[in-house]
């Protein structure tokens, strides 16, 4: 049997999405390897969020292919795609409210994905939830509290726990540190870096924050006006940017 590590986890070919005459993203192609973190950077309107939505199956692209472990996710039926979305994949939203059930306890939020794939032992579900709350540094005594009683940083950590509890292979992240204070951001980034490393996650990370990209991403794709204008290893792109736009972006924003 061929080692999965020898083949890309995700292959994207010529993906395009237009909104009428307006360009979302055009001719995007790349491979994502197991355990790799790919950062997609650019200003707002550059097409990075459109691209992420197309990749995660939330938006249908006009043309192109998205192959996950060799299977075309655009061709597969909605049941398979939804199954994928609650098993192998995870999606961390910028706003934790979009990714959490605000009326359900922290334990229920973390347990939902387990129950969705057939977990039927209350004690085991609770144990897994307790374990995951610990891993994202939420006190176990908060397990029966609802997310609305949590701070913004805690909500985001809870969302991460809820997503990672089923040990997904591929995680989509949309500005995961977006709405948080700088000190809270630092703690979350640290946590994310540890989890990604320990679990060997593949991540597609959309961010406008180059500091976040530098800390988390192995490789970067820079987008402008819907096009990928530069890609390469993170250090290489940030330390020796080739495209004039990337040079501008790095010089004006990056202060790490």
């Amino acid at each position: 049997m061929k080692d999965l590590r020898d083949t890309p986890l995700l292959v994207v070919e010529d993906l395009s999405k237009r909104y009428g005459a307006r360009i979302g993203c055009v001719d995007v192609s790349f491979d994502l390897w197991p355990g790799e973190v790919l950062g997609i950077v650019g200003e707002s309107g550059s097409g990075k969020s459109t691209l992420l939505s197309c990749l995660a199956g939330q938006l249908a692209p006009d043309t192109g292919r998205v192959l996950y472990q060799g299977h075309d996710t655009l061709e597969m039926g909605e049941p398979q795609r939804r199954t994928l979305a609650r098993t192998d994949w995870a999606f961390v939203h910028q706003n934790p409210r979009d990714g959490l059930r605000m009326g359900v306890s922290a334990g229920g939020n973390v347990g939902e994905r387990l129950m969705a794939v057939g977990a039927r032992n209350y004690g085991a579900i609770r144990e897994a939830a307790t374990d995951w709350l610990g891993r994202v540094e939420i006190d176990a005594t908060r397990i029966d509290d609802r997310p609305r009683q949590f701070s913004g940083g805690m909500q985001q950590r809870l969302q991460i726990a809820r997503n990672l509890v089923t040990a997904p292979k591929l995680v989509f992240m949309d500005e995961p540190t977006g709405g948080l204070d700088v000190s809270v951001q630092a703690r979350l980034l640290d946590l994310l870096r540890g989890l990604v490393r320990d679990m060997g996650l593949s991540v597609i990370l959309v961010t406008h924050d180059l500091a976040v990209a530098r800390l988390l991403a192995d490789r970067l794709m820079v987008m402008q006006g819907g096009h990928v204008i530069e890609q390469g290893l993170t250090d290489q792109v940030l330390d020796d940017p080739q495209a004039p736009y990337t040079q501008l972006l790095v010089s004006s924003v990056l202060q790490v």
Binding site: P79, R82, S105, G108, G111, R113, A116, V117, R126
Partner: peptide, 19 residues
């Protein structure tokens, strides 16, 4: 129903027991 997405139903039962 069509997609057999019944996880939410068990979340409700989980919440009952937790509470």
């Amino acid at each position: 129903h069509a997609l057999e997405e019944y996880g939410l139903m068990h979340v409700k039962l989980y919440e009952d027991i937790a509470r």
